[in-house]
């Protein structure tokens, strides 16, 4: 049923944008932003189930839970970044979109440093 809701909202938004573009084209972008926010919020409530499943699974492990937390955070950051970038591109500001993309990438690298350093530690530990 969720998908029908999403399709309904999207089609409604498309029709509204097409109508509004004839009179006030500058308002069309607002409608598209609001629509995407609504759709994303609907999807995120669905994602929480997956994340709780993941954390349940990771509770079974005796180590590496913090890494999986970082992994989930990274995935979330990538989601939000892509969402913002696509909005920027819709508005015709692909320059700002690419900046957001860059920021997201850098934050992801910064968050993944503990993982890489622990990898190094693992390798160094083995060496005699």
């Amino acid at each position: 049923m969720e998908i029908i809701k999403i399709i309904g909202i999207a089609i409604l938004a498309v029709v509204m944008i097409i109508i509004i573009k004839q009179y006030k084209p500058e308002f069309a972008i607002y409608i598209s932003i609001i629509t995407s926010i609504i759709i994303i919020s609907m999807i995120i409530s669905k994602l929480s189930g997956t994340i709780s499943l993941l954390s349940n699974l990771s509770n079974k492990l005796n180590s590496g839970q913090e890494f999986l937390k970082i992994l989930i955070k990274i995935t979330g950051i990538a989601f939000l970044t892509e969402f913002a970038v696509s909005i920027c591109k819709d508005a015709g500001e692909s320059a700002i979109g690419s900046k957001i993309d860059l920021g997201g990438k850098i934050i992801i690298i910064a968050m993944s440093i503990p993982i890489i350093s622990s990898m190094l530690e693992t390798v160094i530990q083995i060496l005699p």
Partner: peptide, 24 residues
């Protein structure tokens, strides 16, 4: 989840994390 995203770094990071966990 992350395959649909444009950002290919996520896939790499996922691979790293899983690889490190299994290797450890």
């Amino acid at each position: 989840i992350s395959d649909g995203l444009e950002n290919s770094q996520i896939g790499e990071m996922t691979y790293y994390v899983v690889y490190i966990l299994i290797a450890t």
